[in-house]
C-alpha cells in the first residue's frame, strides 16, 4: 500500500526579524494508491513544501504525513523524487547516476545492470550510457533523473516541477512520454507544477492551491474527462484543443485568479 495522506498539516516558518509566517494552513489531502495527482498554484502557495514533506525532506509544524500507513520521518528509496534542477551527480555517468540508488541498496550487479539497461532504453538514453551530465541537453538530463526514480521501483513518485527548466518543445515531448510511462508503470504520483495545461493533461486529479496562506482551494477529478475523451490515444496538441480540456483550463484559471484577487484585497 502506498497511499499518501496529509492529516491537518500546517507549516510555519520563523521570520529572520522575528514573528512567524504561515506557509501552509491546515491541509488535508489523500492520494490513493496508484493515483496521479497534480498540484497547481502560484509561487509561494506551499505546493513544493507539501511534496517535500511527503519526501521526508521537510516536516510539518503540526499534523502528520503518512505514506502507506507509516508516518514519514525522513527520506527513503520507496519515495523517489524528481527535482526541477535535475540534481544529477556531475561526476557520475548516466549509467552510474541511474544505478546509484540500486548500489546504495546493495542490489546484485547483474540485477542492477538489467534494470538500468531497461530504463536507459525506455527513456531513449541508449548511446549516452557513459556520458557525463554536462554532455547532455536539459531534456536528456531530466530523462536520466526520471529513469533514476523509476529504476528504484518506488511505491510513490514525487515530482517537483520536473519540466519547469525545459524549453517548450522538449516539455511537450516529455509530457507525452511521462503519460506513456505512467500508464505502463502505475505509481502513486504527486506532480508539482504551476502550468495548468500540464496538470490537466497528466493527472487523474488536480489539486488547486492558493497562497497567503497556502491552502487547497479545490480538488478536481480529471480521470472521467480523460476516459470519455480518449485522451491517452491522442497527441497532446489535439487533447489541448478539445472543448473539455479548454473548459477545464479556464475553470482552473478562474479559481486561481479569484483566489489571487481575494489575497490581494485582504
Amino acid at each position: 500500500m502506498s497511499e499518501i495522506v496529509f492529516k491537518a498539516v500546517t507549516k510555519t516558518f520563523r521570520l529572520p526579524r522575528g514573528g512567524e509566517f504561515l506557509a501552509i494552513d491546515t491541509t488535508d489531502l489523500r492520494i490513493e494508491e496508484k493515483e496521479f495527482v497534480a498540484i497547481v498554484g502560484p509561487s509561494g502557495c506551499g505546493k513544493t513544501t507539501l511534496m517535500r514533506m511527503a519526501a521526508g525532506l521537510e516536516f510539518p509544524s503540526s499534523g502528520s504525513v503518512e505514506v502507506g500507513g507509516k508516518r514519514v520521518v525522513g527520506p527513503g528509496p520507496e519515495r523517489a523524487v524528481v527535482f526541477q534542477q535535475f540534481a544529477l551527480m556531475p561526476w557520475k555517468t548516466v549509467r552510474e547516476n541511474i544505478g546509484f540508488g540500486l548500489m546504495c541498496r546493495g542490489a546484485p550487479k547483474a540485477e542492477a545492470d538489467a534494470a538500468i539497461g531497461r530504463y536507459i532504453e525506455l527513456m531513449g538514453l541508449s548511446g549516452h550510457e557513459d556520458s557525463f551530465p554536462h554532455q547532455l541537453s536539459g531534456g536528456m538530463q531530466q530523462r536520466v533523473a526520471i529513469a533514476r526514480a523509476y529504476v528504484m521501483n518506488p511505491a510513490a513518485l514525487l515530482m517537483d516541477e520536473p519540466f519547469g527548466a525545459l524549453d517548450a518543445q522538449t516539455r511537450i515531448v516529455m509530457q507525452e512520454e511521462l503519460v506513456r510511462l505512467a500508464r505502463r508503470n502505475p505509481r502513486t504520483v504527486i506532480f508539482i507544477t504551476h502550468a495548468v495545461d500540464e496538470a490537466i493533461y497528466l493527472a487523474d486529479r488536480v489539486v488547486v492551491m492558493g497562497r497567503k496562506p497556502g491552502r487547497i482551494i479545490e480538488t478536481i477529478d480529471i480521470k472521467p474527462l480523460r476516459a470519455e475523451g480518449g485522451w491517452e490515444e491522442m497527441p497532446i496538441e489535439e487533447v489541448m484543443d478539445t472543448p473539455a480540456f479548454t473548459h477545464m483550463r479556464s475553470r482552473i484559471w478562474k479559481l486561481l485568479k479569484a483566489r489571487e484577487q481575494a489575497a490581494a484585497d485582504h
Binding site: G74, P75, P77, A80, F83, A87, M89, G101, C104, M152
Partner: peptide, 14 residues
C-alpha cells in the same frame, strides 16, 4: 549543492 545531498538521501544513501 545541497540538492545533490537531498537527492542522494531520497535514493537511500547512508
Amino acid at each position: 549543492d545541497t540538492i545533490l545531498i537531498a537527492a542522494a538521501r531520497t535514493q537511500g544513501a547512508s
